[in-house]
């Protein structure tokens, strides 16, 4: 199952876990399943229209999904997905 790396500000949704295993064939499915497992997390990552918020970057391995196929980006079982705030706070 793919691993999703969770940034500090979202760990309150994952019981403090830095990484969670979530199934899904692409990033969109992973986010849907992530929300099912950890309710409330999706709206911090995506806007009302379901698009990834402007200040959030999602990486599959080392690649930013904006430069791949966005939420359609395929994910393999051994892939690591990182959700990273575009900025670093204060």
């Amino acid at each position: 199952m793919p691993t999703v790396r969770i940034p500090t500000p979202l760990r309150k949704f994952t019981q403090g876990n830095e990484e969670v295993s979530i199934s899904g064939a692409n990033v969109g499915e992973i986010l849907t399943n992530l929300e099912a497992a950890h309710p409330g997390i999706r709206e911090r990552i995506c806007d009302d229209k379901g698009k990834v918020r402007r200040f959030v970057n999602i990486f599959v391995g080392d690649e930013d999904i904006r430069f791949l196929k966005n939420l359609e980006t395929e994910v393999a079982d051994n892939d690591e997905i990182s959700i990273i705030p575009a900025i670093a706070g204060g």
């Binding site: 500090t8 979202l10 911090r44 959030v56 900025i87 670093a88 204060g90």
Partner: peptide
């Protein structure tokens, strides 16, 4: 207004 934000340089104190 949230821990997960995009206002670079600003701090959300309740989560910091």
């Amino acid at each position: 207004d949230d821990a997960m934000h995009g206002l670079e340089g600003m701090k959300h104190l309740p989560s910091s």
